[in-house]
């Protein structure tokens, strides 16, 4: 069995998303969906109601008024925000409790995921490219989920990847493809397919390191690429792969952030990290772990 096949088998071990996500996505297919029906789906999930309400009242997602019920949240924040919050809540434990390779703790991968989600949403809002910010958030949040699969595989020995990157000045995902026949972006896309997420998000995640490789150019790919590169740049959840990725200048040009906007976005993301980590139950010891285990 090739290494690629071995890795593909591991994708099947990733837990499936709770059925509530698919049910909500189906409801959202219908533009005339009733808010009450959507709210009921969430209210039926134990634990979900409290978590969604907490997010709805956070500084990042919330509005000026206080939100007391799921129905109110759906009405005030909109249906897509609700899906975004539900996906965040169900993805959190899967990422946080995983084995991640590249000298990264699960808490560090989760921090990186949150940061790229927030950054992607902000980049989508700031860019003149047409892209729904909530989709950018979801793609950003899940863009590296493939690392939890590759992590179990390379954790034993990631030295060959590092050697190749150093020797030939390759980007990390190119080295991964050369050694394993697959890179973490493609694995992420396979996980998201397994989770039955929309094709646009799957494609954006699968090509987030190399927008030029995508079958068709998509605004969402460019936005996730730029958001990810910005967060890596700023060290927001770096693994030992560090900054060994190549920035696609054409994608940056298409996204076309006004001068200073990239830095403003990073400052907003960095300021929101703690609140987000609290919201997803990252404890202080995990937080120390985030920083300590990203030491290389």
């Amino acid at each position: 069995m090739s290494r690629r096949d071995e890795i593909l088998e591991l994708v099947n071990d990733v837990p499936k998303l709770p059925a509530v996500v698919a049910r909500i996505q189906n409801l959202l297919q219908d533009p005339g969906v009733e808010f009450v029906a959507l709210a009921r789906e969430i209210e039926m999930e134990p634990g979900m109601t409290g978590n969604v309400l907490q997010m709805a009242n956070s500084a990042f997602f919330g509005r000026s008024r206080e939100i007391h019920s799921i129905r109110q949240a759906v009405t005030v924040l909109g249906t897509h925000r609700i899906l975004q919050m539900v996906v965040s809540q169900v993805a959190a434990p899967i990422v946080r409790d995983a084995e991640v390779g590249y000298g990264m703790s699960p808490a560090a991968l989760w921090r990186h995921s949150i940061c790229v989600a927030l950054a992607a949403e902000k980049v989508a809002e700031a860019s003149s490219l047409a892209c729904e910010p909530d989709k950018a958030y979801t793609a950003g949040l899940l863009h590296d989920v493939g690392k939890i699969v590759l992590g179990t595989f390379v954790d034993l020995d990631d030295a060959p990847v590092h050697d190749l990157v150093r020797r030939e000045e390759l980007s990390f995902e190119t080295a991964e493809r050369r050694l394993f026949g697959i890179d973490h972006a493609e694995i992420s896309a396979l996980v998201l397919e397994r989770w039955q997420l929309p094709a646009e998000i799957v494609a954006a995640v699968g090509n987030h390191h190399q927008p030029a490789r995508a079958d068709e150019s998509m605004n969402l790919i460019d936005i996730v690429h730029v958001a990810d590169m910005l967060c890596m740049n700023a060290g927001l959840g770096l693994g030992s792969d560090g900054l060994s990725y190549r920035l696609d200048i054409d994608a940056v040009r298409r996204v076309d952030l006004a001068p200073g906007v990239a830095e403003l976005i990073l400052s907003e993301v960095a300021a929101a990290i703690e609140e987000m980590e609290d919201m997803f139950g990252t404890q202080q010891e995990d937080r120390n772990d985030v920083v300590q285990n990203t030491a290389h």
């Binding site: 980007s171 910005l230 060290g235 900054l243 190549r246 920035l247 200048i249």
Partner: peptide
Amino acid sequence: AGAGSPLGNEKVFKIG
């Protein structure tokens, strides 16, 4: 220490 940059990042952002 620090002030690194991703590959190909010389022309844009230049944060480091």
